[in-house]
Amino acid sequence: MTIKEKGYAHWDGKLQEKRFPWFPITRLGIKLAFKKKYFKFLFSMTLIPAIIYLAGIYLSERLEDFRFMISESAPFIKITPAYFKSYYTNDFILFMIVMIMVFAGAGLISDDLKYNALQLYFSRPLSKKDYIFGKASVIVFFMFIVTIIPGVVFFIMKLIFSGSFKFLIDYPWLILSIFGYSLILIAFFSFYTLFLSSLSKNRRYVTVLIFGLYVFSDILYGILYENFHNYYFSLLSIKCNIKQIGAYIFNQNRPLPVPWIYSFLVLLFICVVAGIILNKRIRGVEIVK
């Protein structure tokens, strides 16, 4: 006899108070991102710089083995904090991070708004904090793979290939820089993407916003700088602000003559505004119309 014929049957288990109630939201977000067309290809493209930089570390330590392949005058690859900074702040990586946000992040909240899914989430024992944390963790997951993991792997590989701890002794703060810069990047892009995703029920508009704001802010800086020759307009550019902070954290010369703290405050301001608006846009009370 099927359950339909038997009638409603009780479940004999016990509902649990979960330690991470947001985890299924994160797992689903990651799963749905990988289901998207071209996402796997795009994501693997994002890892190409990491592979190239890793190869660079290997070559720098084993250059003698490859001497026959390069000319005598070829400069040595020097692994210093500048090498790490160049990985983290290169245009390609930043562009690919934005592309990941477009593919994996644009629909995170906007799809829930479009399909009235918020009422399903909030009729469960989930708080707004759990919901946002679950969604943000999807972005954190992808950003983690692109930022912290390569940095840590570069660092460990440098130690392994060199066969000594000299690099660690010379730059003991570098591992903290890797984590610090990556966390700033992760926090900023999480707020940026979730905020924009909560603004519209249409994922395409959100896609345009995520990509457009990043590119437009840089173009705007370019136009204003060409007209007024003032570097402080770089504070309008998301990319320039990230690069300024990156240069400071990795103890390198700033690309622009603007205090890094201004760039940090600009990104912090964007995060705070995004958090406030996000908090207002996602309201449990709207779940019953």
């Binding site: 399909y115 009235n116 899914a117 009422q119 399903l120 779940i287 119309k289």
Partner: peptide, 8 residues
């Protein structure tokens, strides 16, 4: 809920 709701 009364409204159509789903997760695409």
């Amino acid at each position: 809920p009364e409204d159509d709701c789903a997760i695409p």
